[in-house]
Structure formats: structure tokens, C-alpha cells
Design a protein around this nucleic acid. Structure first.
Lengths: 168, 168
DNA sequence: TATCACTCTCACGTGAACGTAAGGGTTGAT
DNA sequence: ATCAACCCTTACGTTCACGTGAGAGTGATA
């Protein structure tokens, strides 16, 4: 059922187009050992197949997950040294399981940040009550007076500029 | 009621310690216009106060939110040019509101990635049925044979190594 | 055969966020 | 006065993930 599909080869430009990356990027991946052409023309042009495209998508995915390219390389080296397929799959599993933990803690962090943003926005919405004519300096009492005794949230507290002239 | 608290000044080392960053980092922030000492000793040592610490925490927070230091600088410049306090607060609000959108789309992306990880892990758990004695090459049929007709998820499909020798 | 788009291999550039000396001067405690 | 601990400026180094040519060769088409 599965077609063996004639060696549907392409050169780097075509692959770059399909993958949405530049030729330089693919060269770079090769330098790092992440992507190897299936062959070369007699003239020296790199040749790639469909698997190359899959590999690139995979790399992109891992980058999205927060892996650096050296990370990925390290992982590929580890995989290569695996003796059996199940061992390989196991290390892949461990790899992703670990990453899932990371991802989830990242999710938690982001959620916390989101809440902090909401808090800051809530606080700031109170500032609209100040008359537009108010001088900037006059509203320095925003935290002590205007906002009563509500303490400014961290995302707001840092902006005060008491420096004489920070023009650069 | 609010104590004016004696000019609780400190030098860069103390501030760096309290903030958990290096002196170089604080110098660097100053170069970028993000942090200005409140003064200097006659000898030229930088002096900071508590606000400096708050500012550093604020910078850190924004970095967590994905802002680059130049981004933050740009923002501070914009703030400084605001004519009235409410205008300033409004731009701060807009800034954070936008960031909240970014954060939420990031959350969505991460969640998608998490699901993808789960899919990959599910798929891989099937690989354990392979006997440990199986040769690495022998399990190339993992997708076509062993896993029946389930197609390998993207996070798994990219790992196949058909390169002759990818040693660097 | 000539043409032209495509590709090759160097190899230096970029920007973010600092690190790491080098070669000095400053503080303040004894 | 001396000394260790602290700080100053200047300036080059580092990692990541490529960008940007330069100068030359290759492939397919007219």
C-alpha cells in the first residue's frame, strides 16, 4: 500500500522554501549536525528528500518547546548512541516527560504573570479619576493620596523617575 | 505617618547582593538608561536607595514578561515624555494590556505544545511492547508495523537518523 | 555555447545580555 | 599610615541563531 515514491529529491532552495527558512539556516543546521542532506550532485549541490522537511519541522517544534539548537544536537547524539530501539524510545520518552514538566511550570509562571498584569491594570484603572489637567509631579501622591492606602503593585511601583535627567 | 527613613543609601555591591544580580549587570542597566544611582560619593562610588531595588525588581518582572532591555528603555523614554500623570498611567495601562494579550497567546501556544507532548508520550508508550533485544534497525518498522497504522506524531517523526555518520 | 538562476564555501557582522579581566583609585577600620 | 575590601572606567570576550556579502562554480535552458 505504501508507495515507495520515486526519490523525490530537491535542492536547498526548494527545501528552504517549503520549510519557510533560509538557506543559511539550513546550512547552519547542518553545521550543528542537526540536518544532513541525503546526498550531493556531482557538482556538490546538496540534495534533500521529504524526511528532511519533517526533520526541520521537528527542530522547529523543539525550538518552540524552548530547546536551543545545541540542546537538540546533544539529544540527537544521545539518541545515536542508544543501542536498541526501545532504549532510544525510552530516552525520547524521558526527554519529553521532562520537557512536559518544564512546560507546565512555565505555564504556571505565565499564569502568575497574567494575574499580576490584571492586578496592575486594576490598580491603574483608578488613575483615570485624576483630572487630565493634573501635573505629572502633582500626582506623585497617587499611591499615598489618590489611591488611598492601596499599595502599588510591583508592575507599577518601578516606574517612578526621580533621576534628574536620564537623557542619553 | 510615613517615615521619611534616613537616606538609607548603599553602594553597588550591597544593591547587587540584595537584588541578586552582579555589579556588571547594574552597570549595564545604567548604560541602557534603566537605572540611575541617586548620587555618588566624592570618590565617585555610585549610591543607591530602596527605590533602586524596587526598580530592579520591576525590570526583572518585565524581562519575565518577555521584554528586552531595549524595550524597557524605550518604554521608560515614552513614559518620561508623558505630559500628565494620567497620560502616563494610560500608556502604562495600554502597555500592560497589550502584554496581557501576548501572554495569553503564549499560554495558548504552551498548552498546545503540552498536548502535543502528551500525544507523543502516548505514542511512545506503545514502543515499550518491543522486546528489549530488538535491534535498533529492526524497529524501523515501528510506524509501519509495530504501531499498526497510527501515524507518528511530529515530535516523534523527526528523530529518524538515516545519515551515514553524523559525527562532527 | 552562452546565459542566468542557483548553489558552493569561506568568513565577518549582529544584537541581546551580560562575563571577565586590566589597571587603576576609594573607604574606613586598625 | 596602612591595608584589605570595595569600587572605578575601559574594553574586549561569549553564546545563540542566524544575516550578509564575496568570489567562484554548477545546472538547465535557449
Amino acid at each position: 500500500m505504501s508507495e515507495v515514491a520515486a526519490p523525490n529529491l530537491m535542492r536547498i532552495g526548494a527545501l528552504a522554501d517549503k520549510a519557510g527558512r533560509t538557506q543559511r539556516t539550513l546550512h547552519f543546521y547542518e553545521e550543528l549536525g542537526l540536518l544532513t542532506p541525503v546526498g550531493r550532485t556531482k557538482g556538490g549541490f546538496r540534495l534533500y528528500d521529504q524526511d528532511s522537511l519533517v526533520r526541520i519541522h521537528w527542530i522547529t517544534r523543539l525550538q518552540d518547546l524552548g530547546f536551543s539548537l545545541p540542546d537538540i544536537r546533544e539529544f540527537l547524539v544521545a539518541l545515536r548512541s542508544a543501542q536498541s530501539a526501545p532504549e532510544m524510545m525510552k530516552s525520547l520518552q524521558a526527554f519529553y516527560a521532562q520537557k512536559r514538566l518544564d512546560t507546565q511550570s512555565m505555564l504556571a509562571r505565565l499564569q502568575a504573570l497574567d494575574e499580576e498584569l490584571v492586578t496592575a491594570l486594576d490598580y491603574l484603572s483608578g488613575c483615570h479619576t485624576c483630572a487630565p489637567a493634573t501635573e505629572k509631579s502633582a500626582c506623585s501622591g497617587c499611591e499615598t493620596g489618590g489611591h488611598a492606602d492601596i499599595v502599588a503593585p510591583p508592575l507599577v511601583a518601578g516606574v517612578h523617575d526621580r533621576s534628574p535627567s536620564m537623557d542619553l
